[in-house]
């Protein structure tokens, strides 16, 4: 990725030097986003609460990866490793969640019938 962007790298040494301004701004942004996470959780947005919480977490994670972990200036391959691990995690989660809640009506109806007919009393 473009390693001349927004930094005070002077090309000495083997790595890219990130400017203190960027690091401080990133840290402040992360703290603000944390406050927003807490505040958003206290507001009732219905099902959107979950989406908001995850969206903020994704933004925070991206900031940490790109700035603190230098992925913005790194070779793209390092980022590719991270993204592929996340892709596999997402695949894993999706397949595991495939049948979640699917059986609820049947199971609950059965349980209700069991209790309403007065579980076989001895």
């Amino acid at each position: 990725m473009a390693h001349s962007h927004g930094s005070d790298s002077h090309g000495h040494g083997v790595g890219h030097v990130v400017g203190p301004g960027i690091l401080i701004a990133n840290g402040v942004a992360l703290l603000i986003l944390t406050i927003i996470t807490v505040a958003a959780a206290r507001v009732d947005l219905g099902q959107a609460n979950l989406v908001v919480a995850i969206a903020i977490a994704v933004v925070k994670a991206s900031l940490v990866c790109l700035i603190f972990m230098h992925l913005y200036w790194d070779k793209p391959f390092n980022g590719l490793i991270l993204v592929s691990s996340l892709a596999f995690a997402a695949l894993f989660l999706t397949l595991a969640l495939y049948d979640t809640v699917e059986y609820h009506p049947a199971v609950i109806n059965q349980a209700a019938a069991f209790y309403s007919q007065g579980a076989p009393t001895p």
Partner: peptide
Amino acid sequence: VGLYWHLVDLIWIYLFPWSTWFGFSCSRC
């Protein structure tokens, strides 16, 4: 070691909304 430490932070970033999500929003939504 810095990268490792950022990952520990990263995982917590996802752990934290999990607890707030269940702590506040879910009980209402």
